[in-house]
Design a protein around this nucleic acid. Structure first.
Length: 282
DNA sequence: AGCTACTCCTGGTAGC
DNA sequence: TGCTACCAGGAGTAGC
């Protein structure tokens, strides 16, 4: 599933192709993909809008729009599980999984394709109105070791579901949470207020390090859906320490990586590097 | 407050 | 080989 590094990779690769371009019109091929309201409403809101900036907030891809030199809202794209954005040379290149196609003023088409149809394209007058409450960006200055320490102490949730909560910290998903918790030596069932100061500092460093390295490697790809717009896979999946390595030896201690379910999510741990605290219910 | 269960979806795969 | 059943999972929501 695309997480912060994959979304950041999409933004960087897409930016030169779409910034400065004007959307001539939108074709909605799967109505539920677009928000708000009806496809007709979406088409009216995006028509003749120029993309003046492309950036990322949490896992949202944000297109800042202008029409006639005036701000015209934002187009928000969330890839969810299997969404992808591609610039195509012709309308004919839109494939069977194409859900929305935007015709650009250079005659090319921006295609949003999404096998599982969970992804969304959402026009909103302002960013804040189009996204729910979001926690700090883990790669920006507000995310400090001290902030994390006190934020963990103020909550009583299990650490993994807390880190997956976008209102707590924005951008992490199942893969990078498992990787960061391994790097920090924290068991995913640990109640957040029981994470020690030293472990919280390790966790802060682990989150920053794993996201930074994943972006450097253009994200992770381990099936056909997790690719850059150019069709090239990322390379971070080769760095995975625990995610998807159930039954394999830990790269640090040789113990067998185990899989458990936490908050309904597949979770991967090294039972030796990530000691389970006492008196923690499963 | 925080937990589980359910919903949305379909390709891939395990089991027979 | 061909069929069915089940699973993954981000995020929103309902209910306890």
């Amino acid at each position: 599933m695309p997480e912060l590094p994959e979304v950041e990779t999409v933004v960087r690769l897409l930016r030169p192709d779409v910034v400065g371009r004007t959307i001539r019109r939108a074709e909605v091929l799967w109505p539920r993909t677009v928000l708000p309201g009806t496809p007709r409403h979406f088409m009216q809101r995006t028509r003749d809008c120029t993309i003046v900036r492309l950036w990322r907030r949490a896992k949202y891809i944000v297109f800042d729009l202008e029409r006639g030199g005036e701000a015209a809202g934002v187009l928000l794209c969330h890839l969810r599980m299997t969404g992808r954005l591609h610039v195509l040379a012709t309308r004919d290149a839109v494939g069977p999984w194409g859900r929305v196609a935007l015709e650009l003023d250079d005659a090319r088409w921006l295609e949003f394709l999404d096998v599982r149809k969970f992804g969304r394209l959402h026009w909103s007058p302002r960013l804040e109105e189009g996204v729910p409450a979001l926690g700090p960006e883990p790669l920006e200055s507000a995310f400090t070791s001290a902030w994390l320490r006190s934020a963990l102490a103020a909550r009583r949730r299990r650490i993994k579901p807390l880190l997956l909560d976008q209102a707590f910290l924005a951008g992490l998903g199942n893969i990078y949470v498992d990787e960061a918790l391994f790097m920090a030596g924290i068991h995913p069932l640990t109640p957040s207020h029981r994470v020690s100061k030293a472990k919280a500092e390790r966790l802060h460093a682990a989150v920053v390090a794993t996201l930074t390295e994943a972006i450097r490697r253009e994200g992770s790809s381990f099936d056909t859906f997790y690719r850059t717009p150019e069709g090239q896979p990322g390379a971070y999946q080769h760095q995975f320490q625990v995610y998807g390595r159930t039954g394999s030896p830990c790269r640090r201690c040789e113990s067998t990586i185990r899989r458990l379910t936490v908050g309904g999510r597949g979770t991967h741990v090294c039972p030796r590097c990530q000691r389970r605290p006492r008196n923690v219910p499963s």
